[in-house]
Design a protein around this nucleic acid. Sequence first.
DNA 1: TTAGGGTTAG
Length: 875
Amino acid sequence: MAKTTSSFKFDAYPPSKNHRENSFHSQNGFTFHKPTSSATLVCSNLHNSYATIPISASLATTIDHECTSFNVKICESCEVGNLKKAMELLYMGQKFDLDSRTYCSILQLCADKKSLKDGKQVHSIICDNGVAVEGVLGSKLVFMYVTCGDLREGRRVFDMVANEKVFLWNLMINEYTKIGDLEESICIFKRMLGMGIEVNTYTFSCILKCFAAVGSLKEGKIVHGYLLKLGFGCYNSVVNSLISFYFRCGRSESARKLFDELSDRDVVSWNSMISGYVENDLGEKGLEVLKEMLCSGIEVDLATMLSVLAACADCGTLPLGRVVHALAIKVHFDREIAFNNSLLDMYSKCNDLDSATSVFEKMSERTVVTWTSMIAGYAREGLSDGAIRLFLGMIKADVEPDKVAITNILHACACNGSLEHGRGIHDYVRENNMQSSLFVSNALMDMYAKCGSMNEAQEVFSQMRVKDIISWNTMIGGYSKNSLPNEALGLFVAMLKEHKPDGRTMACILPACASLAALERGQEIHGHILRNGYFSDQHVANALVDMYVKCGVLVLAQLLFDMIPVKDLVSWTVMIAGYGMHGFGREAIASFNEMRRAGIKPDEVSFISILYACSHSGLVAEGWRFFYSMQNEFNIKPKLEHYACMVDLLARIGNLSKAYKFIESMPIAPDATIWGALLRGCRIHHDVELAEKVAEKVFDLEPENTGYYVLLANIYAEAEKWEEVKYMREKIRRRGLRKNPGCSWIDIKGKVTIFVANDKSHPQARKIESLLKKLSTKLKVEGYFPKIKYALINADDMEKEAALCGHSEKLAMALGILSLPASKIIRVTKNLRVCGDCHEMAKFMSKTTKREIVLRDSNRFHHFKNGVCSCRGFW
DNA sequence: TTAGGGTTAG
């Protein structure tokens, strides 16, 4: 057997310049070239000195025979798919001048078997033998690398061999699209066009998929025009690609038009239509296509079934889903994992968790998708504990959770408020280096936000190197929902520097404006909504109405409400609550009735709104009517909030003993809010004796809530029981409780000024004080007498009057009178309930200064105009 | 030797 030494390879002639360029460097510093059938051995080193050794003709013939034999044997092994044998033969014959076709066969087998290790070995042997990597062999090498998942090496070889073969270019475009490097796909496509490579149908399929993933409708349309010009518009596969492209860009009409004009529709065309409609949340249209498909006699395949199940899940059409299930059993699709996964998902989305569980239990093999779909099903039903149990089951079954599974389980933790489990999942994410996934990080933030831990959400957010609009929206919404409106607004301002907000951002930030009564900022956001056409988004429209309600501009809220074309339950509930807050109980009832006429069924939240509206307008009989109709007509069991409204309603009008009996008759245990409502009634109606009895219950239920101790102290102060006041203050001090300090704020030309009681820090403090003194004197002439009992201090009347003048809401109102033009309404917000004397004085102020004052306290709105308040004494 | 439809998600 001819044998080469480790330091020699054969060559017939000294290498040409071109040949030298295609040579490979071996580790010992010598350059070797592939052997040929000529009878000369050539050894060269880097200094280009060649040694020529003559060999005999018979030896050359033997080498040829051996070589042919290896070529044949390797190819035979490849044909039967025996990679191990083929590799063994390759090692044995590696020094021979094997056929390029042999290398191609074995590389193809490596690709089929996804064996990167063997593929690399083959590549190494090819290099060692000095075989030129070009033409078909070059393509095959690239193909092997990308198929085995080593795109980097595939790309290196591609760049080295880049030729005019359209196949390789298509392959590269497609591979970069698969890994999500869409920019590179587009770059390769453009380079290919620039080089004048002749494109084919595959090229269009690949690049359209890429433009669809980017959502680049404009560029995709250009490609559409280009392919029509080149005459590719009649190819079925290209039109199918176009259909999918338009669907993915949300243009279902364009997709439908192409489909209608397509004469040669195959099963892929039909499937593309069904799945395209499903992707666009138009499952019903997808099912219509299915009907057409069946009428046309087209045979459905597995992909059709999967899309149809998705359509059933989308529309909640359980009966059809069951038919598909039965049909699938007949044609044995129920053996396919993907089918069972879709089936399970369909059942769970159609609220039939039992059937989903049954499919799950019958599956002999379960993938991460199976487990994830089950987890999602449990989370959807609100069975978060079950979802967490399933997740643990998945780990136990050695199924590695992927990013989708993590996202789902985090969602389940979020719905359940399971912070501890959520933190455990976060640990898993860190251990498995999954935090770089946007999906995962966004889900983590959402979980922390929903579990009320904004600090941890902020930590995740700050560690994200790449943030998308969802990341920002999640944080802004989280701050809004966790009563951190200033943080929400601050982040919104930061976001504007990096991202263009979308409709969801608007729906997240508006509640923060509403909570702060930040009208000017809310109006800026309203402008943004108008400029960008976000009002058509129901969430945005509802949040905007709510913002105007809570910023005290009920007229605008009403106007915008009227502009919502299709009002949903939330729209109506917001408006009903708005009327209630502003003291328009009758209007709230009229809206409630109108909602019923529009065919919308109220839920427990809308009943809270209407009961609240009744209690804030003193509509006792109406309140009872709604309370009973909720139970008898709508079968809604009253919750604590509903009972609290009823207690408030009774207590406010002075029916304290009835309220007490009502609480005692409740079928559910009353909480501190319920007794607190009665305690506030005791304050309004000065019933110290009952207040003491009620306060005991409140203190038992919420011993740490300072507000209730202060409330009882105030009841004592108003009754001038100073010893008891002292005792209460002592009790607060002993318990180490801190009082939530009262403050009021006013927005003047976008600048918010906050006042606390007796605040003298404002630059205009002297002017404010002097104005209040002047007004007090003037108002006394008109009939106002300071309600000194609200001073809540044991002092003489002069001191009490001075203390009253320092109340934060008075200071804010005075600044408004001093700073705002006469035509402007003075809008003040207070974090606690308004003081009785401030309320009285505001009435007189509105008449004397001819100014309209809107004061929002923690409970409701007070519109002061011409000496009258809209609350008519109910607050 | 590549592609067009095909399971889970914020």
